[in-house]
Write a protein that binds this DNA or RNA. Structure first.
Lengths: 191, 191
DNA sequence: CCATTTTATTATCTTTTGTTAAGCATCATT
DNA sequence: AATGATGCTTAACAAAAGATAATAAAATGG
């Protein structure tokens, strides 16, 4: 149950078997069905998730429309991290796109963990740094690339998601409408 | 020289006088003129900066054109953080827009600091978290808002920068051309 | 297996932005 | 005061994206 988790964590930081136990005990295992909301817009996110299996989508709601901010897949820490860190109501919703198996840690449990195992500060620092780097990469693609180029990059970086995620979700993630993405795909085919 | 620095740091974490001394000794003071490059595209960023005075701009270069990624002002940690963290050549350039007074810490000095004062992990964690939150906010404005709305938000959030920064720099930061920003401003005036 | 819903494509029209180029205004420097 | 550099605005045109709607295709749930 924790195999993937330890593998990912060890890329950031080494833990002794005893420390791993402590770490494990702070998490709970949870199975959730498709279309299950883990964080609702307007509520404070109190949990962090590690995905063993499944897909989780983070989206904004604007005028009845869902605009995807990120798609988390296996071996990633998913969260409405912004809300979790600031302890402010989330402007995002976090929702499963497939049946998922996840590891869950609450804000309180994490605080306790900091006390018992100060080393965790290093881990969460590196996770935060990772999230920052990732966020920067997406941001730079908005500044430097056209929608078509962003889609090409998405195709390369997330080939697997093309099969698992509806096109309109990808479109909103790329900052365009589904109609526009459909046109881009057509243009690309023709040439 | 360290007054502003301590004030900002104390928002994240408390330090004893002794700890503050250690912290200070890891930094050096530096004065740089306008248009001075702190990090060049293609080089690994080995320093972090705290701005006492002045403006520092982070930009990408694409086809002879400079596209602004961020503008750092007083009391902020400026850096090509991505490159600094990954120790990979930067795809960004970090350059002063005004004469600046900055505090500088090198990668090595920071590593030493982690050993002497493990608490620093908490500080850098919170700085990384802050950078992530900030990055997320900008990213969401690209997903949710039109260029005009982004400019309105910029006007409100960074009134001071409107006076200090040329409009074409702001335009590229908003992901549009200077011509387009000029049109947007005209539209806004008319209504 | 059918009925319903969701998703994707296509067409039309409008709006916006990009591109290029020209004309001014401003500012710093000599 | 003249010079050049830089930045802002405007215009004209091309290209792309948004909005809306109709249709087709695919997935979902009973």
């Amino acid at each position: 149950m924790f195999t993937a988790f330890h593998k990912v964590v060890s890329q950031f930081l080494e833990f002794t078997p005893r420390e791993k136990e402590i770490l494990e005990s702070a998490f709970t295992f949870r199975q959730i069905p498709k279309k299950c909301k883990l964080v609702c817009k307007g509520e404070v996110a109190t949990e962090l998730y590690f995905i063993n299996k499944g897909l989780i989508r983070l989206y904004y709601t604007k005028a009845e429309e869902e605009i995807t901010g990120f798609i988390f897949k296996e071996n990633l820490f998913a969260s409405s991290y912004d809300s979790f860190l600031r302890k402010e109501p989330s402007i995002q919703t976090l929702e499963s796109m497939e049946d998922c198996e996840i590891l869950v840690i609450t804000h309180d449990n994490l605080e306790d963990l900091y006390k018992v195992l100060p080393k965790i500060n290093i881990l969460t620092r590196k996770v935060a740094e990772q999230r920052f780097i990732n966020s920067q990469q997406i941001l730079s693609s908005f500044l430097l690339e056209s929608p078509e180029e962003r889609y090409r990059r998405f195709e390369i970086q997330h080939k697997d998601l093309l099969q698992r995620v509806p096109q309109n979700v990808i479109a909103s993630f790329l900052g365009i409408t589904p109609v526009s993405l459909s046109r881009i795909r057509k243009r690309m085919q023709e040439s």
